Simulated scan of single mutants.
Amino acid sequence: MRYRRANVAGATYFFTVNLADRQSSLLVDHIDALREALRRVRQVHPFGIDAMVVLPDHLHALWTLPLGDADFATRWMLIKAGFSRQIPATEFRSPSRVAKGERGIWQRRYWEHVIRDEEDFARHVEYIHFNPVKHGLVRQPVEWPYSSLHRYVRLGLVGAEWASDGRGEGRFGG
């Protein structure tokens, strides 16, 4: 059975992408490799990053694809492969992965959701920026270094104290 994905050209999508080893910290340990993989893919297959947070074992992203383009799957495949090529091969690989020539760094699947409206967009931005607090990595969202929240603060969209009361909802307009 083939997994069915939403394919809406030019849409904004929310993604959750996980490492295979959920105890790993590869994403933050090798943040520069992830940034480089993203940069290279965006040069060839442009897309906007509306919000993003990178945690030790997974990431959340909100992307807007160009008009007429719905191919986020290729972008994720290239980002995962580009990152993986920069990481030493020390991970466990199942016989299935070995047979397919795959690394064992990423989960094969990821979650995507098409953003429906401004309220849905705002809710997902908040979720992304509050996620490090939710996972107990920091007490305040602004303390997490691998978050687009810092860009939102620089642009004056929110203050540095956003969600400093431990709640991450209802702070962005929608």
Rank of each mutant, 00 (worst) to 15 (best):
R93E: 14
G82A: 02
V125R: 03
K80T: 11
A81H: 03
R116S: 03
K100A: 15
H124R: 15
W111C: 05
R85L: 13
R93K: 14
Q107I: 05
R109L: 10
G82C: 03
I115W: 06
E102D: 14
H129G: 07
V98C: 06
R108G: 04
R85S: 11
R75G: 03
F130N: 05
G82F: 01
F121H: 15
Q86V: 02
P95T: 07
I87G: 06
E112D: 15
S94C: 01
F130G: 04
H113T: 10
G101M: 11
H113F: 09
K100R: 15
S94E: 01
F92L: 11
R85M: 12
R123D: 14
A89T: 10
R97A: 13
N131M: 07
P88Q: 12
G101E: 11
V98Q: 15
D117Q: 06
M77G: 05
R97G: 09
P95S: 08
F83C: 09
R97T: 08
S94K: 01
G101Q: 10
T90Y: 02
P88K: 13
E118Y: 00
E118Q: 02
R97L: 15
F121N: 12
R109Y: 13
S96C: 05
G82D: 02
D120L: 11
R108K: 02
D120T: 10
W111I: 08
E102Q: 15
E126I: 04
V98W: 06
R103L: 07
F130D: 05
W76R: 02
Q86I: 03
R109A: 14
S84Y: 05
A122G: 05
A122T: 05
E119F: 12
L78H: 02
H124A: 11
A99P: 06
I128S: 00
W76P: 00
R97S: 13
G82R: 00
M77A: 13
F92C: 04
I115M: 10
Q86L: 13
D117A: 07
Y127G: 10
A81S: 08
R97V: 08
S94T: 15
Y110V: 07
G104F: 10
R85C: 09
I128L: 01
F130E: 04
I87E: 07
R123I: 08
S96E: 14
F92D: 06
I115P: 01
R103E: 10
V114N: 07
R116W: 03
E112L: 09
P88W: 14
H129D: 13
D120M: 09
S94D: 01
I105R: 09
F83G: 08
F130A: 08
S96I: 11
R75L: 06
R109Q: 15
K100P: 00
Y110E: 08
G82M: 00
H124F: 12
A81R: 06
R109H: 15
N131W: 07
Q86N: 03
A122L: 05
W76D: 02
